[in-house]
């Protein structure tokens, strides 16, 4: 809808300040769209693809040629630019796709699952590429993905969409922190006697939840692990409990995803029940 490929039934949407219904062509000039399935012309060369795309956006002459040369350089397929795209590798084709979305210097770039179908090496290279482009071309990039690791690495802000609705949005850190908090694990020097006391002591820390004992390990959840550890250690020290080690672990984005989409399922289930 934001790429103007489909028209909304109702409501209003702005992309880079342009109304997609009333001024679709202004919006189209402001955006670059890289579809999930490559839209390159496989029978044409890389350069011809870029030249045509540039001409559609009204670029011409020396400015167009310069821009195409720069882009071919930027995405690293300058040597292959005179070859027909049919002979390109998957990664090269993908990068050409992205270059096609960049020809007219858009302010917003839509990347629809840019790494689907790429091997791990090509995927890592693509991540580097995306980060570099965002910086060099001063772009806002809207990237959709099924790989949470990718969202974690690349995003400044992210939104989780379930069944067509944004269920939560924020930075990756915010979302992870907003979940159940971080897990703090305290390993005790010896488990005899003092272990039960230790659980009580740790649980006294404000904000600690779900505190439990697992052998010599006391687990608890706190909103912010780095801030909590000195205070928890202080409390334990006051109670004369000797500590062997402390670790914190944050929930992964996978946990966040399951939390929000899982809740959706549950809500739906009850909703459907007669």
């Amino acid at each position: 809808m934001l790429t103007t490929l489909t028209t909304p039934d109702s409501g209003q949407a702005l992309v880079a300040g342009h109304d997609v219904v009333r001024h679709p062509n202004r919006a189209r000039h402001a955006i670059g769209y890289v579809p999930q399935d490559s839209g390159v012309d496989r029978e044409a060369t890389g350069r011809e693809n870029l030249m045509l795309q540039g001409r559609i956006y009204g670029l011409r002459g020396a400015a167009l040629r310069q821009r195409v040369d720069d882009l071919l350089q930027l995405i690293g397929i300058a040597e292959a630019s005179e070859r027909v795209v049919r002979g390109y590798s998957g990664g090269m084709k993908r990068r050409l796709d992205i270059a096609l979305g960049l020809v007219h210097r858009p302010s917003v770039l839509f990347l629809d699952e840019p790494t689907t179908g790429l091997d791990p090496e090509a995927r890592a290279a693509m991540w580097v590429e995306v980060q570099r482009l965002a910086a060099q071309e001063s772009l806002t990039i809207l990237l959709t993905t099924h790989y949470l690791e990718e969202a974690n690495q690349l995003s400044d802000r992210l939104a989780i969409v379930s069944r067509g609705q944004v269920v939560v949005e924020g930075t990756a850190d915010e979302l992870k922190r907003g979940l159940q908090g971080e897990l703090v694990t305290v390993e005790l020097q010896d488990s005899n006697g003092s272990a039960a006391d230790a659980v009580a002591v740790v649980d006294r820390f404000p904000g600690a939840r779900e505190t439990s004992l697992d052998g010599r390990h006391v687990n608890t959840r706190v909103p912010n692990g780095a801030q909590a550890i000195p205070a928890i250690l202080g409390l334990l020290d006051d109670a004369n409990v000797t500590v062997a080690s402390v670790t914190t672990s944050r929930p992964s984005l996978d946990d966040v995803y399951l939390h929000y989409t899982g809740r959706e399922f549950a809500a739906d289930d009850t909703g459907d029940a007669p």
């Binding site: 000039h29 839209g39 956006y57």
Partner: peptide
Amino acid sequence: DRNVVSRFLATPA
């Protein structure tokens, strides 16, 4: 089939 048309549709062509 090759999505060339949908690519053009996202441009002001």
